[in-house]
Simulated scan of single mutants.
Amino acid sequence: MKPTRALDLTANVLIAAVVAWIATRWAYSTFPPISVIAGASLYPVAALEAVLGFVIRARVGDERIGDGPRQLHPITVARAVALAKASAQVGSLAGGVWLGFLVWVYPQRSSLHAASSDTPGAIVGLIAGAALVAAALWLEYCCRAPSEPPDESATA
């Protein structure tokens, strides 16, 4: 399995931002009010993944990966990698949606009261998307297999 590419995440952000900007421009008057809590929904997942990354990193560093008691099963690590890869995609898409929404709402703050009250929620959501991507990339990094030391030559 290859590491998540920054280009893929950047493409997700840009595509989602453009689609969200178009949708916001077209249908903003039908949107419900955006609260700060709506934007903060990804923070608990990001925190959980960051903590999981530290736990797995400690287990890998202590060589406590295996099938025995008090060891972290390799399948659990593989599942954590799958979670990290999926979360990086979700975080980049959510961040892109909030970015597109914010690009339309932020300039409208002076003329629309609703845009002014929606701006903090969009900022919190954008930061939450970035936090989820960062936590997911950290978790993915922590799940890497340790590098093997070079074999000694047979003649030594």
Rank of each mutant, 00 (worst) to 15 (best):
L52E: 02
A114Y: 03
D67G: 15
A27K: 12
N12M: 11
E49D: 09
W98E: 03
A136L: 13
P74H: 14
L9H: 01
L126C: 06
A47M: 13
L139E: 06
T10R: 07
L48Q: 03
I22F: 12
F101H: 02
S110Q: 15
K85R: 15
V133P: 02
G66W: 08
A156E: 15
S111F: 07
W138E: 01
V36T: 15
G53R: 11
V105L: 02
G95V: 07
L93V: 07
W21P: 09
S116G: 13
I22N: 12
P146I: 03
V60D: 00
Y43V: 13
R144K: 04
V60G: 00
C142A: 12
V51D: 07
P32D: 09
P32Y: 04
G66Y: 08
E63A: 09
A86H: 12
V60Q: 00
T4C: 02
D8P: 12
A78M: 13
M1Q: 09
M1F: 10
T24C: 06
A58T: 13
W98I: 06
W138N: 00
R25Y: 13
L93E: 06
R79S: 10
G66I: 13
V133N: 01
R109E: 14
D67M: 14
M1I: 14
A134E: 08
W21R: 13
A50T: 15
Q71P: 06
S116D: 15
R5A: 14
L42P: 12
A11S: 08
T76C: 10
V55A: 01
K85L: 14
L48C: 03
I65C: 04
A58W: 01
L9V: 07
L72I: 09
A82R: 04
S116N: 15
L132Q: 07
C142H: 02
P107C: 06
S153V: 14
R64D: 10
P74V: 14
T119W: 02
I56N: 01
S153D: 15
G100A: 00
I123K: 00
A46C: 05
V97D: 04
P44M: 10
V60T: 03
I123T: 04
G66S: 09
I123C: 00
A128G: 14
G61M: 02
A130K: 03
T30K: 13
A16L: 07
E152D: 03
A122F: 12
S117G: 08
L7G: 06
S29I: 10
L52H: 01
A16C: 05
A46L: 05
I127L: 06
A115M: 05
